[in-house]
């Protein structure tokens, strides 16, 4: 255990936690916005996978990472349009529609990968960028301020999302249609337009999450996300529908994963219980969800299609 409490290992573990948390944070922030408007999207994982593929393919073909990010963002927006039409205008059941989006993203990304790429080929990974002065701070400089631009963007979006949700008219509309769409409608707020916009933003964030994942790894493989989108949905509940709480959940999830991996590497966790220890992040999340679920209330109109009476 002593080996773990050395500066280099602790710093590396923290850096790993931040890296792991990045795609979860982006996806969960987007899902927070959607859920605050009353729309649950279980298709986040599918959107991430499809966006990740398109980001990867774009970089593979052009070598331009930022074009890859842009394409992933556009794919997220397009999936948002699809999901918005289904759930807002056709008032479809959100749960099953989300699953449909997930299956579509899973299958279509797989199909496109086989048709267009085949064998995995590496692409350039996002380089780390040191923030002057801050990156030199002992202990926290490396994990927090020697990261890639997608990580910085993810964490910068936390206060932005907070401000949008809590300090703007658009945010107020989102919260209103998520709590009482009938009342919001009677006050002249367009529930459909507000929810559609929230879905678009949420899916765009999921698109960015897919791009962050694939550009951090530098490779794509079918089923790349391994259920990250579903964890992101859980993190929204974990974070009590608040961006700061969601960030805390993403970081906790990343940290538990990073610590478990580091302990395995150091031999602190014996190989014999290695697989059991790998469940730790999910177990911690479930326990936290069970504890938190009793203390917080979901948006009152979450999952309920709006039908003007």
């Amino acid at each position: 255990m002593g080996d773990f409490f050395t500066t280099s290992v602790l710093v590396a573990t923290a850096a790993s936690a931040v890296r792991l948390a990045t795609p979860y944070l982006l996806a969960a922030l987007g899902e927070t916005i959607g859920q605050r408007s009353g729309v649950l999207n279980l298709g986040v994982d599918g959107v991430m996978m499809l966006s990740a593929f398109f980001a990867y393919w774009t970089v593979l073909e052009t070598g331009n990472m930022w074009l890859g990010v842009l394409v992933a963002l556009l794919v997220g927006l397009m999936m948002g349009v699809l999901y918005g039409v289904i759930t807002v205008f056709f008032e479809a059941t959100q749960g099953i529609s989300g699953i449909g989006i997930f299956i579509f993203g899973l299958g279509f990304s797989d199909l496109l990968f086989r048709q267009q790429v085949g064998t995995p080929k590496p692409i350039r990974r996002l380089p780390n960028i040191d923030i002057p002065l801050l990156s030199d701070i002992p202990y926290i400089g490396e994990p927090l301020f020697q990261r890639n631009l997608m990580t910085y963007a993810a964490f910068a979006l936390v206060p932005v999302t907070m401000i949008v949700l809590n300090k703007t008219t658009f945010g107020l509309n989102i919260r209103s249609v998520g709590e009482n769409p009938q009342a919001a409608d009677s006050l002249g707020v367009s529930v459909e337009r507000t929810r559609f916009s929230a879905i678009m933003i949420g899916n765009a964030f999921a698109g960015l999450a897919g791009a962050a994942l694939v550009l951090q790894l530098g490779i794509f493989q079918p089923h790349l996300t391994q259920g990250m989108g579903f964890i992101a949905v859980a993190l929204v509940y974990f974070g009590a529908w608040k961006p700061l709480g969601v960030m805390g959940g993403a970081l906790l999830f990343g940290l538990v994963n990073a610590v478990v991996l580091q302990w395995k590497a150091l031999g602190i966790i014996p190989v014999s219980i290695s697989d059991l220890a790998g469940m730790a992040p999910a177990v911690v999340t479930i326990i936290a969800l069970v504890l938190l679920a009793r203390r917080v209330n979901a948006p009152a109109a979450l999952t309920k299609p709006f039908v003007r009476s």
Partner: peptide, 25 residues
């Protein structure tokens, strides 16, 4: 030799972080 079983045949991100953990050591 340090061995890390990630617990997954398909989790590319976890495998990458496992490699990072080895490099840190």
């Amino acid at each position: 030799v340090s061995v890390t079983y990630t617990g997954s045949f398909g989790d590319v991100a976890l495998a990458a972080e496992a490699a990072q953990a080895h490099l840190a050591n």
